[in-house]
Lab assay of single mutants.
Amino acid sequence: YETDHQDYCEVCQQGGEIILCDTCPRAYHLVCLDPELEKAPEGKWSCPHCEKE
């Protein structure tokens, strides 16, 4: 399936195990989030940028 999400972390610009925001195209490593997450959230997730909106 096709997605318009970026394939690198918004914070460190590296690829790998990233989680995708359900609201925007941004993607993040769990450890690059502040506060960092230990595991990917279940269900819908909005990144810090979208949470501020």
Rank of each mutant, 00 (worst) to 15 (best):
R26T: 03
C24P: 03
K39F: 04
T23V: 05
Q6A: 14
G16K: 15
E38W: 07
C9R: 01
Y8V: 12
V11F: 15
H5I: 12
C12D: 02
T3L: 15
Y1S: 02
C24N: 00
H5A: 15
Y1W: 13
G15L: 05
A27D: 04
C9Q: 00
C50M: 00
P35L: 08
D34S: 12
G15H: 07
K44I: 04
P41R: 08
W45I: 07
Y1C: 14
C12F: 01
D34K: 03
V11I: 08
D4C: 13
K39R: 05
C24A: 01
E38D: 10
E38R: 07
T23K: 02
E51F: 08
I18K: 13
E2Y: 15
C21Y: 01
A40P: 10
C9A: 01
G43M: 08
D22F: 02
E10S: 07
E42D: 10
R26K: 12
L37H: 09
Q14N: 09
L37T: 13
A40S: 11
V31R: 04
Q14A: 08
E42L: 09
L20I: 08
T3K: 15
I19A: 13
T3Y: 14
K39E: 08
C50K: 03
G15W: 07
Y8A: 13
E17M: 12
P35E: 10
R26I: 09
K44R: 13
R26V: 05
E2Q: 04
E36F: 05
V11S: 15
H49S: 04
L20D: 13
T3M: 15
P35Y: 11
E42V: 12
T23L: 09
L37G: 11
E38T: 05
P35T: 12
C47A: 01
D4K: 12
H29W: 01
S46Q: 04
W45H: 15
H5F: 07
Q14G: 13
D22C: 03
S46F: 09
Q13L: 07
E36Q: 11
P25R: 07
P48T: 10
C9L: 01
Q14H: 07
L30G: 12
E51M: 03
R26G: 10
G16W: 10
L37E: 02
E10F: 14
A27E: 02
S46K: 04
Y8M: 13
G43W: 05
Y8N: 14
T3H: 03
P25C: 04
T3P: 04
K52W: 08
E36H: 06
